[in-house]
Design a protein around this nucleic acid. Structure first.
Length: 469
RNA sequence: GGCCCCGUCGUCCAGCGGUCUAGGACGCCGGCCUUUCAAGCCGGUAACGCGGGUUCGAAUCCCGUCGGGGCUGCCA
């Protein structure tokens, strides 16, 4: 039997990294087992779902390198794979469950239900204890599923799990306005699409008995469930907006690479063994198994992701690095001509070495293109507001002005002669030149930077800095 | 409150009864390199929550306890 797995995001926000990891694990397992990976959109919440979010989700999945065999955008035997176009089907299932007696109409008010919940709680019982089939049958309202049996199942990552019937509420499957709830829509789809494995966040573990009961009521065999550990923020709580970036898009815009992202996500709850930290998707596909997923929650560690990103950046061929960084640079300083871009390419290997995020590379290259240099305040204060700086700049101006060739080697030998001549340490000479030319005490290597910048601009900046002292 | 899940360095992962004086990675600290910042190299710091069992032997199995988390909606 071929495996069929899916990811079913709700288009009520951009793709969350937690959902991205769940998608990755489903995808890895599908690819590992030679099965089918499906992307479905769970948009039963008509209020909060938007086409923009849906587009962002699909786009982010593609960016991460997760392709799908069936689903939204690529088609397949089940329509457009959006729940919003299957409401008739869900209603039909709900009504047939009422007809067969396993579900019932319930027109009780919110207040009545709340009272029943509180009563149960006062008595130390499960909140759903008293929310059961009313004595006199109703013929309108929401449709609830009548829970009458305990549920036991084997979770692929957690092992045997059991829920007593008393601890499962008679849950609503069809709202009084005729729209399906998540439980219904998701379960009907999993049955109709013949999903064999459901790997999802642990937050859905307590809903699983409902899904199993529903599946059986439809006369189908439940899929294998695998509940993945949640992703936490540094405070040990479920990862959310207040922890900073949580959407794939935010990481993308900050300059993270999809390869690094996916590598890091894979590591959050799983490991390929052999103490391997850096690996590609092919290796992950080869070794991945849902049964090997970690049970305890993982804290999302931005430092480690950033380090990994740096590893990927440094591992790239310098040409690919330059190519991928160009949009960031142009975003920072505007469109560049080929000649202007050549200046970046000259420095590219040196910038690549000290870049962890593509965005940082753009910042390092900024001095090459701005017409008016801005000085980093702290750098200026630390380096330029010292005695003897004007003499240093004068000497540098002299030495550089006399150069016939303008290249890194010539610049280096001209400037290297200065510390001794001025009786100063190397740092005392090179740092003022650096700040004058790049605007910051932190920059790519000095001689190469001057070479790439060009004679005219370099000299002009030294003069400008000299005037400002 | 009820139900469910989880518990190895600060963090992620390895460990599936003996080879564990617990291994790798990030971070952190120190050193080397060095015109800055990185990178690189070398070294260091640091964990089996606790208590009982089972066993010749437990990080690994069982029970309890404590701690953390999730769910508890006509959201998903």
């Amino acid at each position: 039997m071929t495996t069929r797995l899916r990811v079913a995001p709700s288009p009520t926000g951009n793709l969350h990294v937690g959902t991205a990891r769940a998608a990755l694990y489903n995808w890895l397992y599908a690819r590992h087992t030679g099965g089918v990976f499906i992307v479905r959109i769970d948009d039963t919440d008509r209020e909060r779902s938007t086409p923009e979010y849906e587009a962002n989700i699909l786009d982010s999945l593609r960016w991460l390198g997760l392709d799908w065999d069936e689903g939204v955008g690529v088609g397949g035997p089940h329509g457009d794979y959006r729940q919003s176009s299957r409401f008739d089907r869900y209603r039909e299932v709900a009504e047939s469950l009422v007809a067969s007696g396993v579900a019932y109409y319930d027109d009780r008010s919110e207040e009545e239900l709340e009272e029943l919940r509180q009563r149960a709680q006062r008595e130390g019982k499960h909140p759903a204890y008293y929310i059961r089939r009313p004595d006199t049958p109703r013929s309108e309202g929401a449709i609830r599923f009548a829970v009458e049996e305990s549920v036991e199942f084997v979770d692929l990552v957690r092992g045997e799990i059991r829920f007593e019937a008393d601890a499962i509420d008679d849950f609503v499957i069809l709202r009084s306005d005729g729209t399906p709830t998540y439980h219904l829509a998701s379960t009907v789809d999993d049955v109709d699409y013949e999903i064999t494995h459901v790997a999802r966040g642990e937050d859905l573990l307590s809903s699983t008995p409902k899904h199993i009961l529903l599946t059986r009521a439809m006369g189908a065999e439940p899929p294998v469930y695998a509940h993945l550990p949640l992703l936490f923020g540094a405070d040990g709580k479920k990862l959310s907006k207040r922890h900073g970036a949580t959407s794939v898009t935010e990481f993308r815009e900050a300059g993270y690479l999809p390869e690094a992202m996916v590598n890091y996500l894979a590591l959050l709850g799983w490991s390929p063994g052999d103490d391997l930290t850096i690996f590609d998707l092919d290796l992950a596909i080869e070794r991945f198994d849902l049964a090997d997923v970690q049970r305890n929650p993982a804290v999302f560690d931005l430092d480690k992701l950033t380090w990994l990103n740096g590893e990927y950046i440094r591992a790239m061929a310098v040409e690919s690095f330059a190519e991928r960084v160009r949009p960031w640079v142009e975003d920072e300083v505007g469109p560049l001509s080929d000649d202007e871009w050549a200046r970046f390419e000259e420095l590219a290997p040196l910038i690549q070495e000290r870049t962890k995020l593509l965005r940082e590379a753009a910042e390092q290259a900024r001095f090459l293109y701005v017409s008016e240099i801005t000085y980093d305040e702290a750098s200026w204060k630390k380096v330029m507001e010292k005695d003897g700086v004007s003499e240093v700049l004068d000497a540098a101006l002299d030495a550089l002005g006399a150069l016939s060739d303008w290249n890194a080697e010539a610049i280096e030998s001209a400037l290297r002669a200065l510390p001794e001549r001025l009786g100063l340490g190397a740092g005392k000479v090179f740092q003022p030149v650096r700040v004058a030319v790049t605007g910051s005490a932190v920059s790519p290597p000095l001689f190469e930077s001057l070479a790439a910048l060009g004679r005219e601009t370099s000299i002009a900046r030294l003069e400008e800095a000299r005037r400002r002292l």
